[in-house]
Design a protein around this nucleic acid. Structure first.
Lengths: 88, 88
DNA sequence: TAGATATTTAGATGATAATCTAAATACATG
DNA sequence: CATGTATTTAGATTATCATCTAAATATCTA
Protein backbone atom coordinates (compact mmCIF):
# COMPACT_ATOMS: atom_id res chain seq x y z
CA UNK A 1 0.00 0.00 0.00
CA UNK A 2 1.30 3.46 -0.87
CA UNK A 3 1.91 6.08 1.74
CA UNK A 4 -0.67 8.36 0.24
CA UNK A 5 -3.51 5.87 0.01
CA UNK A 6 -2.75 4.78 3.54
CA UNK A 7 -3.30 8.33 4.69
CA UNK A 8 -6.54 8.56 2.71
CA UNK A 9 -7.69 5.38 4.39
CA UNK A 10 -6.84 6.32 7.97
CA UNK A 11 -8.36 9.75 7.50
CA UNK A 12 -11.52 8.15 6.19
CA UNK A 13 -12.05 6.04 9.28
CA UNK A 14 -11.00 8.82 11.65
CA UNK A 15 -14.47 10.38 11.63
CA UNK A 16 -17.15 9.02 13.92
CA UNK A 17 -19.99 9.58 11.45
CA UNK A 18 -18.10 7.71 8.77
CA UNK A 19 -17.35 4.78 11.03
CA UNK A 20 -21.06 4.75 11.80
CA UNK A 21 -21.85 4.64 8.09
CA UNK A 22 -19.57 1.64 7.71
CA UNK A 23 -21.32 0.03 10.63
CA UNK A 24 -24.71 0.66 9.04
CA UNK A 25 -23.52 -0.88 5.78
CA UNK A 26 -22.25 -3.91 7.62
CA UNK A 27 -25.81 -5.26 7.66
CA UNK A 28 -26.03 -5.05 3.88
CA UNK A 29 -26.16 -2.64 0.98
CA UNK A 30 -28.25 0.50 1.38
CA UNK A 31 -29.41 3.53 -0.54
CA UNK A 32 -28.33 6.99 0.62
CA UNK A 33 -31.78 7.65 2.06
CA UNK A 34 -31.67 4.40 4.00
CA UNK A 35 -28.24 5.25 5.40
CA UNK A 36 -29.53 8.69 6.33
CA UNK A 37 -32.17 7.12 8.56
CA UNK A 38 -29.32 6.12 10.88
CA UNK A 39 -27.01 9.12 10.52
CA UNK A 40 -28.10 12.50 11.83
CA UNK A 41 -26.68 14.89 9.24
CA UNK A 42 -28.04 16.71 6.19
CA UNK A 43 -28.18 14.88 2.88
CA UNK A 44 -25.36 17.04 1.59
CA UNK A 45 -23.12 16.17 4.50
CA UNK A 46 -23.90 12.49 4.17
CA UNK A 47 -23.05 12.68 0.49
CA UNK A 48 -19.76 14.32 1.40
CA UNK A 49 -18.90 11.54 3.86
CA UNK A 50 -19.84 8.89 1.33
CA UNK A 51 -17.56 10.46 -1.23
CA UNK A 52 -14.65 10.30 1.21
CA UNK A 53 -15.38 6.65 1.98
CA UNK A 54 -15.65 5.98 -1.74
CA UNK A 55 -12.35 7.69 -2.42
CA UNK A 56 -10.75 5.42 0.18
CA UNK A 57 -12.43 2.52 -1.57
CA UNK A 58 -14.10 1.55 1.69
CA UNK A 59 -17.45 1.55 -0.08
CA UNK A 60 -18.65 0.84 -3.60
CA UNK A 61 -21.63 2.37 -5.38
CA UNK A 62 -24.00 1.31 -8.09
CA UNK A 63 -27.02 3.00 -9.50
CA UNK A 64 -30.51 1.58 -9.23
CA UNK A 65 -32.94 4.01 -10.84
CA UNK A 66 -32.81 7.29 -8.98
CA UNK A 67 -31.15 5.65 -6.07
CA UNK A 68 -27.53 4.89 -5.46
CA UNK A 69 -26.77 1.76 -3.57
CA UNK A 70 -23.70 1.70 -1.35
CA UNK A 71 -21.97 -1.45 -0.22
CA UNK A 72 -19.14 -2.05 2.20
CA UNK A 73 -15.82 -3.08 0.68
CA UNK A 74 -14.62 -5.53 3.27
CA UNK A 75 -11.23 -6.14 1.70
CA UNK A 76 -10.12 -2.58 2.38
CA UNK A 77 -11.07 -2.90 6.02
CA UNK A 78 -8.90 -5.98 6.06
CA UNK A 79 -6.08 -3.88 4.60
CA UNK A 80 -6.36 -1.57 7.59
CA UNK A 81 -6.06 -4.53 9.91
CA UNK A 82 -2.88 -5.55 8.14
CA UNK A 83 -1.44 -2.05 8.44
CA UNK A 84 -2.13 -1.87 12.15
CA UNK A 85 -0.76 -5.33 12.75
CA UNK A 86 2.47 -4.10 11.21
CA UNK A 87 2.84 -1.74 14.14
CA UNK A 88 2.74 -4.62 16.61
CA UNK B 1 -14.76 1.07 24.79
CA UNK B 2 -16.57 4.37 25.02
CA UNK B 3 -17.55 6.40 22.02
CA UNK B 4 -15.34 9.28 23.05
CA UNK B 5 -12.15 7.32 23.66
CA UNK B 6 -12.70 5.53 20.40
CA UNK B 7 -12.70 8.87 18.63
CA UNK B 8 -9.54 9.93 20.48
CA UNK B 9 -7.89 6.73 19.39
CA UNK B 10 -8.83 6.86 15.72
CA UNK B 11 -7.88 10.53 15.54
CA UNK B 12 -4.51 9.68 17.06
CA UNK B 13 -3.62 7.16 14.40
CA UNK B 14 -5.07 9.29 11.59
CA UNK B 15 -1.88 11.32 11.26
CA UNK B 16 1.01 9.99 9.21
CA UNK B 17 3.70 11.40 11.50
CA UNK B 18 2.08 9.81 14.50
CA UNK B 19 1.84 6.43 12.83
CA UNK B 20 5.49 6.83 12.01
CA UNK B 21 6.27 7.52 15.65
CA UNK B 22 4.47 4.32 16.61
CA UNK B 23 6.49 2.49 14.01
CA UNK B 24 9.72 3.92 15.39
CA UNK B 25 8.75 2.83 18.91
CA UNK B 26 7.97 -0.64 17.65
CA UNK B 27 11.69 -1.41 17.79
CA UNK B 28 11.85 -0.50 21.47
CA UNK B 29 11.57 2.39 23.90
CA UNK B 30 13.14 5.68 22.90
CA UNK B 31 13.80 9.18 24.20
CA UNK B 32 12.22 12.14 22.45
CA UNK B 33 15.52 13.05 20.84
CA UNK B 34 15.94 9.52 19.53
CA UNK B 35 12.45 9.57 18.06
CA UNK B 36 13.19 12.95 16.53
CA UNK B 37 16.07 11.43 14.56
CA UNK B 38 13.44 9.61 12.52
CA UNK B 39 10.69 12.22 12.39
CA UNK B 40 11.27 15.42 10.48
CA UNK B 41 9.45 18.00 12.61
CA UNK B 42 10.47 20.53 15.26
CA UNK B 43 10.85 19.39 18.83
CA UNK B 44 7.72 21.27 19.79
CA UNK B 45 5.69 19.56 17.10
CA UNK B 46 7.01 16.16 18.07
CA UNK B 47 6.11 16.88 21.68
CA UNK B 48 2.61 17.79 20.54
CA UNK B 49 2.22 14.53 18.64
CA UNK B 50 3.54 12.55 21.59
CA UNK B 51 1.00 14.20 23.85
CA UNK B 52 -1.82 13.14 21.52
CA UNK B 53 -0.52 9.58 21.42
CA UNK B 54 -0.18 9.64 25.19
CA UNK B 55 -3.74 10.91 25.61
CA UNK B 56 -4.92 8.00 23.49
CA UNK B 57 -2.83 5.74 25.71
CA UNK B 58 -0.99 4.47 22.65
CA UNK B 59 2.30 5.33 24.32
CA UNK B 60 3.55 5.44 27.89
CA UNK B 61 6.24 7.73 29.32
CA UNK B 62 8.72 7.56 32.12
CA UNK B 63 11.47 9.90 33.17
CA UNK B 64 15.13 9.01 33.10
CA UNK B 65 17.15 11.99 34.16
CA UNK B 66 16.55 14.84 31.75
CA UNK B 67 15.16 12.47 29.21
CA UNK B 68 11.70 11.09 28.83
CA UNK B 69 11.46 7.58 27.55
CA UNK B 70 8.46 6.66 25.44
CA UNK B 71 7.23 3.12 24.93
CA UNK B 72 4.56 1.66 22.70
CA UNK B 73 1.42 0.42 24.43
CA UNK B 74 0.64 -2.60 22.34
CA UNK B 75 -2.63 -3.44 24.03
CA UNK B 76 -4.28 -0.28 22.75
CA UNK B 77 -3.24 -1.10 19.20
CA UNK B 78 -4.91 -4.43 19.77
CA UNK B 79 -8.03 -2.57 20.85
CA UNK B 80 -8.08 -0.81 17.50
CA UNK B 81 -7.89 -4.16 15.76
CA UNK B 82 -10.91 -5.31 17.72
CA UNK B 83 -12.86 -2.18 16.82
CA UNK B 84 -12.14 -2.56 13.13
CA UNK B 85 -12.96 -6.23 13.17
CA UNK B 86 -16.38 -5.29 14.50
CA UNK B 87 -17.06 -3.56 11.20
CA UNK B 88 -16.47 -6.77 9.29
C1' DT C 1 24.65 27.47 42.01
C1' DA C 2 25.46 28.61 36.96
C1' DG C 3 25.26 26.84 32.68
C1' DA C 4 24.14 23.06 29.52
C1' DT C 5 20.84 19.69 27.89
C1' DA C 6 16.06 17.65 27.19
C1' DT C 7 11.50 18.40 26.74
C1' DT C 8 7.16 20.84 27.18
C1' DT C 9 4.13 24.87 26.94
C1' DA C 10 2.41 29.25 24.95
C1' DG C 11 0.89 31.69 21.30
C1' DA C 12 0.35 32.44 16.43
C1' DT C 13 -0.57 31.06 11.63
C1' DG C 14 -2.08 28.63 7.61
C1' DA C 15 -4.31 24.54 6.01
C1' DT C 16 -8.10 21.04 6.38
C1' DA C 17 -12.32 19.48 7.45
C1' DA C 18 -17.25 19.06 8.93
C1' DT C 19 -21.32 21.10 8.34
C1' DC C 20 -25.19 23.72 6.41
C1' DT C 21 -28.48 25.83 2.74
C1' DA C 22 -29.38 26.40 -1.90
C1' DA C 23 -28.86 25.03 -6.47
C1' DA C 24 -27.82 21.60 -9.94
C1' DT C 25 -28.11 17.01 -11.98
C1' DA C 26 -30.13 12.53 -12.97
C1' DC C 27 -33.74 9.51 -13.33
C1' DA C 28 -38.75 7.96 -13.23
C1' DT C 29 -43.44 8.40 -14.39
C1' DG C 30 -47.92 10.35 -15.27
C1' DC D 1 -42.20 16.62 -21.50
C1' DA D 2 -43.35 18.41 -16.81
C1' DT D 3 -43.12 17.27 -12.19
C1' DG D 4 -41.43 14.72 -8.25
C1' DT D 5 -37.82 12.08 -6.04
C1' DA D 6 -32.88 10.92 -4.99
C1' DT D 7 -28.49 12.45 -4.69
C1' DT D 8 -24.57 15.40 -5.59
C1' DT D 9 -22.23 19.82 -6.14
C1' DA D 10 -21.28 24.75 -5.00
C1' DG D 11 -20.23 28.04 -1.86
C1' DA D 12 -19.87 29.73 2.74
C1' DT D 13 -18.88 29.31 7.65
C1' DT D 14 -16.87 27.66 11.73
C1' DA D 15 -13.93 24.58 14.18
C1' DT D 16 -9.98 21.78 14.46
C1' DC D 17 -5.27 20.66 13.54
C1' DA D 18 -0.30 20.51 12.22
C1' DT D 19 3.28 23.31 12.46
C1' DC D 20 6.59 26.85 13.81
C1' DT D 21 9.46 30.06 17.02
C1' DA D 22 10.19 31.62 21.46
C1' DA D 23 9.89 31.01 26.21
C1' DA D 24 9.37 28.13 30.28
C1' DT D 25 10.39 24.08 33.10
C1' DA D 26 13.11 20.30 34.73
C1' DT D 27 17.30 17.87 35.35
C1' DC D 28 22.24 17.18 35.39
C1' DT D 29 27.02 18.46 36.16
C1' DA D 30 31.18 21.22 36.71
Amino acid sequence: MQEDSQQTLFQAIADTQRRKILDVLKSGEKSVAEINEHIDVSGATLSHHLSILKQADLVRVRRAGQKRIYTLNVSVLEQILIQIKKLL
